[in-house]
Design a protein around this nucleic acid. Sequence first.
DNA 1: CGGCCTTGCGTAACCGATTCCGCGACCCAC
DNA 2: GTGGGTCGCGGAATCGGTTACGCAAGGCCG
Lengths: 350, 350
Amino acid sequence: MDEIARQAGVSKTTVYRALSGQGRIGESTRRRVLDIAERAGYRPNRLARGLRRARTGLIGVVVPGIEGQFYARLLEGVEKALQDVDHRVLLTMSRGQREYELVESLLDMQVDGLIVASETDEPEFYTRLLERRVPIVFIDREVPGLHADLVATDHFQGGVLLGEHLRERGYRRPAFLSMTDSPRRIGSVEDRWCGFRSVFRNAALLEFPFVASAERYQEDHPEAPQPETFSELCRHAVAGALEPLDGFPYDSVFAQYDHFALALIDALKAAGLRVPEDVGVVGFDDHDFTGYTEPSLTTIRQPLREIGLQAARRLLERIEEPDLPAAALRLPPRLIARRSSEPLAAKEQP
Amino acid sequence: MDEIARQAGVSKTTVYRALSGQGRIGESTRRRVLDIAERAGYRPNRLARGLRRARTGLIGVVVPGIEGQFYARLLEGVEKALQDVDHRVLLTMSRGQREYELVESLLDMQVDGLIVASETDEPEFYTRLLERRVPIVFIDREVPGLHADLVATDHFQGGVLLGEHLRERGYRRPAFLSMTDSPRRIGSVEDRWCGFRSVFRNAALLEFPFVASAERYQEDHPEAPQPETFSELCRHAVAGALEPLDGFPYDSVFAQYDHFALALIDALKAAGLRVPEDVGVVGFDDHDFTGYTEPSLTTIRQPLREIGLQAARRLLERIEEPDLPAAALRLPPRLIARRSSEPLAAKEQP
DNA sequence: CGGCCTTGCGTAACCGATTCCGCGACCCAC
DNA sequence: GTGGGTCGCGGAATCGGTTACGCAAGGCCG
């Protein structure tokens, strides 16, 4: 800018006025400066601007990882919404740990706000941040006792949809396959459980060891061979959950994620059970391939992209208007009925 | 920092020396300053530091999108490697357009370097950037005529592996299913084609309309209903590619991505053909679900995470040492043999 | 014609960390 | 006891935009 000012024979302030359109400036000067800037290939330094204005156009995003497609789709929505208003995503992956460090480092970089879609559950940290008036929007993750913005799928409704679906199709003894830590710890799964139970009072709870990431798995099983993909990870975990069972006393299972559902189907097949003839299975997420599996998987499609979009928009609003009351936005999920929950009626008329 | 200096009764310079460990400073002063800073919850402003040092610890990353799992896994590797050295990822998604604008905006933010894993192919833009000595590492994308760092799968080798696999299993009339734009435009697919042809001289080339993203699809087919997932997108495209065919004259198909492979299998089934009995199908990528599909999919597992890691490391090296000669790193892929390419021998002995 | 307002532009401070330069005190040796 | 060196520290400039303030010229009004 100094250089341009010199070339145009004006002050830096005037250059600024020409470039920004702010303030009073003569038309001819403006043109001349703009012309010189253009010719010089001038591009503003966003760091310097951010420093002075205390606004960087940077949004910090925290996710556990993006291999699981779930967070990837969310992120697509977030990035899209932010790109539309010329903001940038500063992305970090917590991989089930170090979440607070990462958030701190994002704040050090002077992000304008945070979108947190992660898994830890210590509210104190975020309480302090909210007291400091750091704009935060949580995605799909209700921090207990925290009065903050939230955008999520209506998980209760998802539980209801699947419950009603199974009931309509004639299933009567369903199980709810979950991780050891939930439903107490993970709000979304808790909500699904409540919705599901509102349809099936007698639903049983099946649990298996918590699996978040390859790193985490490696920590928990230091000597086991490292699974290469998330699918393999789930397969190990689900197999472990079925082992202690004496026979398989359920006629259907609501698995919390499609990965678990597919792993379960594999485990059931290995145990000599047919899906859906002996056991119906439904998942949650509608991953890309669930239409191609054998059997194809009945599942819930969450409006992930939309959630990301809304979360980003909400955050931008809050940055503009820090005093907005905190609100939760729950978007409706959609049932995708496929073969893995084929009606019992069908199997009883061979 | 001024505040801390005041409280400690020293100058800002001294505070800096205490905090950074740089320069000469008395032990007692150091302790006192550190103590006060700790108590005040001081955190350095990375913007200011970046401005002064011309080093931000920010790395710009450009990908088309991350729903397709391919870029998601790459990104996992990149983020991991950068996190280890306390750098952050500034993520942008080009969605098949606006790539240059995005790169410019990343540079405005004073990123230390760029990792580009995207799809456009105009070398001029990047030539200029390289002349300006902007550190760039390309991922899985050879820009023609550009002498730059590259990290990729050894696609030629991948083509060879699949070719040999099909030949060993008895297939003789293979087709190479690709997008209209390739293999001329996309280097990786071109390489696979060469590798595949080095095994099967008579391999045929099947093409279908290019599909990159929902946005792009919508542009090309403004009045068609918007597919909701990438799978659906591929299904439309592949179906279109098979339509003009008179019968199906091939005994096997090498589809360039697992998504295409699965879409193809669906299309073949719909046409009354059995996979792998009538037609063997192999894919490329080893997506998360390809072990669960019916039939399970033979494919190539690319070391995506590793590619991301190496690319990030390479970029860091180049940032430190801008005069390094440009190099291409091609990592070996791995064949994952599954049912979709079951030996012909098996089908001929019923 | 003097007071007042608008226009067009410049000066200097500022954001917060970093860095160059240098000064006074002190130690050691010749 | 004086020259040379080290130690501990401060002043001020710097990175590149942004902004508060103010000044001179010119027009308009009473």
